[in-house]
């Protein structure tokens, strides 16, 4: 079932330049979708439109078969959360506890029930030991995990990650990628991740490539990321393992494309046996 469908969506900020130009796409419930493209390709604008943070001017977005507009926005926000890039600029409370409570307060949750909810979601993102910490005593990865807990506490079905790992150090990046992976796997969340991380894209179910406001590729990770011609033409990265397979192919040796190094090495060794 499609949880989100976007039809002929175009958008421009004040200057008249089209940041999005006739984009249509669908996101399946329970899928892990990555949206890749250069800075300025329209990825973040698409995310903001889906989260109802920008007004739709042309085209439409349907979420759970509800048309996203001013009447439905509050209803839709309960089923869709968004985590942004900068960990500092989305930490609203003065402690971890207060920050997770922020969205609950807005939804007028009974204060007596909040502690239980806070504990539950702090546990999911492994922040239960930091509940009384202030943001300036937390690492970027930890702050970002709090942001995720804050979004989760509101009970969404879909979470959009708008370059949520790009400002983090390698450890923070790993932490967040693991949390996203677990949410998809264990909590059956629909994930939409806007990212520059081609390896993350490779491990997702569905990849969408945007370039200059237009959708240029859309499909499962393997087929999209195998389209070297297109990826190279727009200057995007190619997964490392695919590059190696490609280099073998150029030597006239066919080797199957693999998602990870282990698979690749195995494939190379099998090659050895055949000869």
């Amino acid at each position: 079932m499609d949880i989100i469908s976007v039809k002929d969506l175009s958008f421009s900020y004040g200057d008249g330049i089209k940041v999005l130009d006739g984009v249509s796409l669908t996101i399946e419930e329970g899928s892990y979708t990555t949206i890749i493209g250069h800075n300025g390709s329209g990825k973040s604008t698409l995310a903001k439109l889906m989260a109802g943070l920008l007004m739709i001017k042309e085209g439409e977005i349907r979420i759970f078969d509800l048309k996203l507009d001013l009447n439905n926005i509050n209803k839709i926000r309960q089923s869709l959360g968004i985590v942004f890039q900068n960990p500092d600029n989305q930490f609203i409370g003065s402690t971890v506890r207060d920050d997770i409570a922020f969205g609950l307060e807005n939804h007028r949750v009974d204060p007596g029930k909040m502690d239980e909810i806070i504990d539950r979601f702090a546990h999911i993102v492994h922040m239960e030991e930091f509940l009384d910490k202030e943001p300036n005593n937390l690492s970027g990865g930890q702050k970002q995990r709090v942001a995720i807990a804050g979004v989760l506490a509101m009970g969404p079905k879909v979470i959009i990650f708008d370059e949520a790992t790009s400002m983090l150090d390698p450890q923070g990046k790993e932490e967040i990628k693991q949390v996203i992976y677990d949410l998809h796997k264990n909590e059956k969340m629909t994930i939409i991740s806007i990212t520059h991380d081609i390896e993350e894209a490779l491990n997702s179910d569905h990849v969408i490539v945007l370039e200059k406001g237009k959708k240029v590729l859309d499909g499962d990770a393997f087929s999209v990321l195998s389209n070297f011609k297109m990826l190279k033409a727009i200057g995007l990265d190619i997964p490392f393992t695919f590059k190696v397979s490609e280099a073998f192919k150029n030597k006239g040796i066919d080797i199957k494309k693999c998602k990870d190094l282990e698979g690749l090495v195995e494939a190379i060794c099998q090659l050895n046996l055949k000869n």
């Binding site: 109802g52 509050n74 959360g81 968004i82 942004f84 600029n89 609203i92 922020f102 942001a147 804050g150």
Partner: peptide
């Protein structure tokens, strides 16, 4: 960005 984050969380 903060305004966006607050709005997205239902404020």
């Amino acid at each position: 960005e903060l305004a966006n984050a607050m709005e997205a969380r239902g404020y």
